[in-house]
Design a protein around this nucleic acid. Structure first.
Lengths: 238, 238
DNA sequence: CAGTGGTCTAGACCACGCA
DNA sequence: GCGTGGTCTAGACCACTGG
């Protein structure tokens, strides 16, 4: 099986394994292309092709003159790109995040399954409201495995801040590398209308997200229900 | 502008221009990488890089042993990927398309603008319903410039078939190469409720699309209003 | 079988970041 | 000035397609 694959693919796999093993921090460069070529016994061009693949996959970023680095995903905006988060002056901004409840309890079966934890094991549940200019836009329900995020059980609610993923990293050492989202439309229920201050009994946008770490394991399950009036999404297709 | 651009980029631009000029059909291969290298006075590796770019941009497809070809976009499913089009047996299928009206008249200003035609010039307007298992899912309003699509004015309504883009190509010689879509949510109006047979006075999914030809000019403007119950969209992000 | 694109090498020089 | 990644060359051989 391995023998048939091109060498740059084999190198890609080996580098991907070393990346998943957290061999390099975000701020330290990988070995030089020359060094990699020498240590793996390959030509530089072959090493470059392997790095090309990893760069296209989003795992690495290259900077001419500086080096090649683990890619730091910037989810600050990208994960909320389904909504127009414009403030009163029409500028894009990070919405305020307000934790509304924190509980330790058993997740529903489909959540436990998505997180890859055994049914019946407790997990951490957060409910959170996101606001722009003090107006609620999205309500979120978040589930986290206690094995990785136990420290969040005791953190004062006011210390959570507006962005969770930097907190996951600084407090729990968990880095979100990628995520998968599924978008649907649902009828607004009474809770939605009250929480999101919806005018009419219309619909809400529902986004179910699973976030994965550098090693590919599921870190977080999240469902968001948002005001459809602020929803806007653009795609180019070919 | 072309100050010291890399040669593979210059070659990419030249090839892109030749592609836009329809120099090659879908079924005939481009010149060999060797031939291109010789005729442009470049190394094969440089030519490969230029073709890599065009392939990643979706303009070309390479086939080992056969050659490099103009990419034939397959919009049959991709342009309706926002909806779950499952029939009674749970299988994916192309929805039925039913032309409901065809008129020649002046388009609204924003449509004329998007199509790049002068205000006040008439265009072709189609209204079309798309159904699965005879149940309406999406209603569409389509605008086409007469300069390119004049032949559609006289085509019998029953001859339009379920897919428009193959018709654009076979009848009018217009090939859709890419498109841009903007997705929003709107409250359902009376027309939506009647046309789409919606149960409640909820919302509809609105998709505004501009489709472009191989030469980059806008070919079609389209707005679709769909049943949100069948809406589902999945994205991977990093 | 001949011809295509795919992989790989071993160099060279260029553009950029940083000290 | 030095080291990084970026571009480019001129070959070689491999894997696949088609007649």
């Amino acid at each position: 099986m391995d023998r048939r694959l091109p060498r740059y693919q084999l190198l890609r796999d080996q580098l991907a394994a070393r990346i998943a093993a957290l061999e390099w921090r975000f701020d330290e460069p990988l070995p030089t292309e020359q060094e990699l070529a020498a240590s793996y016994g390959l030509a530089v061009g072959t090493v470059r092709k392997a790095i090309d693949v990893l760069e296209k996959e989003g795992a690495l970023s290259r900077f001419q003159g500086r080096g090649t680095f683990i890619r730091r995903a910037n989810f600050d905006r990208s994960l909320l790109r389904f909504f127009r988060f414009l403030d009163a002056r029409g500028r894009r901004q990070i919405p305020q995040g307000k934790i509304q409840s924190r509980k330790t309890k058993r997740p529903p079966a489909h959540v436990a399954n998505a997180l890859g934890i055994e049914a019946g094991i407790a997990a951490l549940q957060l409910k959170r409201l996101r606001l722009i200019d003090a107006k609620p836009l999205v309500s979120e329900e978040i589930w986290l495995p206690l094995s990785r995020f136990g420290k969040l059980e005791k953190l004062p609610i006011d210390d959570f801040g507006n962005l969770l993923y930097p907190l996951y990293e600084s407090l729990c050492g968990q880095v979100v590398a990628r995520a998968s989202e599924r978008l649907t439309i649902d009828l607004a229920n009474d809770s939605d209308i009250e929480t999101l201050k919806l005018q009419d009994a219309g619909s809400v946008v529902v986004i179910e997200r699973i976030a994965y770490g550098l090693d590919g394991s599921a870190l977080e399950w999240r469902i968001s229900r948002g005001n459809p009036g602020h929803f806007s999404y653009t795609v180019d297709i070919r």
